[in-house]
Amino acid sequence: MDLDVFVAAHRAEWDRLDQLLGRGRRLTGAEADELVALYQRAATHLSQLQSSAPDPVVTNRLTTLVARARSVVIGSRKATWRDAVHFFAAGFPAACYRTRHWWIWTGVLFTVVTAVIATWLANSPEAVATIAAPEALREMTREGGSYESYYSSSPAAAFSAQVWTNNAWIAAICLAFGVLLGIPVIYVLAMNAVNVGLGIGLMASAGRLDVFLGLLIPHGLLELTAVFVAAGVGLRLGWTVIDPGRRTRTTALAEEGRAAIGMAVGLAVVLLVSGVVEGFVTPSGLPTWARIAIGVLVWVAFLVYVFVPGRRAALAGETGDLAREDRSDQQPVAV
């Protein structure tokens, strides 16, 4: 493409579009039709320039012009409570359901690695001895030791807020840095698997596995599932860099990235629930079976939320991305 010839051929149309956008009065019917036609042409011109001759000066001018025209043609729209309700009723559960194969297998692999580490430590006194001195191990695993006292180390409300912040940060790392081919996500998962396996293995070696599981399960089922979802979405985002499918890589990353940002909001709410359970239920004086029952009930409720309304919304075409009218224009161009 000869950039100078292209600009000379279409400058008059761009100037006329700029003129129509700059008018302070209402447009006539003919002028409104003309603005729409010029907006569509300018969007096509922008796509052609971006794919064939990405001159920064011309591209920036056209990008601004098309954005202004789009806001006039389509109209700006502010987010409302209806958008939030739609997101939690359809968008978020659909996004979780759509990525289920990624996070279910992530959870399976995490569980296997954790079980291998825990089993190894539970059956290998030599391995346990390399972790810490005998006195330190007894302090961690004894009744009232650090593993138990951790959950009551702060007031329930403050502890819930602390746990929520930490877990939301882990989920955000998985979602945000998944684009780096998923490598940071794998690292985060590995570190968490080691920590959980270490706790289970040490408490099992001390003959107090039932106590540890009674503390871990009430909040851990929902908390770990939320981390698995975040990790699965992050890994999917990393795979999109490698294989965008039928979409262009830029379009695929934009769509999956926007959905990931939305999922960060949804998972923050899920982790808030697990944080409340960890702060108020896990250290409570309720019987172990009651605490576990509450944790299982909350976890099952989340799974039903994903696999019932989430499946229904996903089959209806919901992806968790922005509404179609809020997305940028994509004009097909033959190159």
Rank of each mutant, 00 (worst) to 15 (best):
F159P: 11
R247L: 15
V241N: 07
G266P: 03
A161H: 01
L137G: 03
H86E: 08
L272Q: 03
G91D: 00
V58M: 02
A171H: 08
L198C: 06
T288R: 15
A12I: 11
E256W: 07
I104T: 07
V269Y: 09
V185A: 08
E135Y: 02
R249Y: 01
L181P: 04
T63A: 12
I186R: 11
V108I: 15
A252M: 13
V72A: 09
W289D: 10
W169L: 10
W81K: 05
G232T: 13
A230M: 04
W14S: 10
A268W: 04
A161W: 03
L224H: 12
V333Q: 13
I170C: 06
E148N: 10
R208K: 11
V269R: 09
S205E: 05
W169E: 04
A53I: 00
E143S: 01
V116L: 15
N60V: 03
V188A: 10
A301N: 05
G295E: 09
W103L: 06
A231R: 07
V108T: 06
S124I: 07
T251C: 00
G262L: 05
A53D: 02
I261L: 11
A334M: 11
A264L: 08
V304C: 04
F110T: 14
S328T: 08
S153M: 11
A94V: 08
Q19E: 14
L202W: 02
G310Q: 05
A259G: 10
A314R: 09
I170R: 10
L235E: 04
R258P: 00
G220L: 06
R327I: 01
K78R: 15
L180Q: 04
S51L: 14
P244Y: 06
G279V: 02
A204E: 07
D243S: 14
A37W: 08
A9S: 12
I117L: 08
H45I: 00
S149Y: 07
V211S: 07
A161S: 09
G266Y: 01
A264Y: 00
A32W: 15
A53V: 04
C174G: 05
S52K: 12
S328K: 07
E223R: 13
A172D: 02
S124V: 03
S274N: 01
R312G: 00
H10A: 12
A231P: 02
I294P: 01
S274G: 06
A122E: 09
V269E: 10
R208M: 02
N167Y: 09
L49V: 14
A37G: 12
N123P: 00
A32Q: 14
L315Q: 13
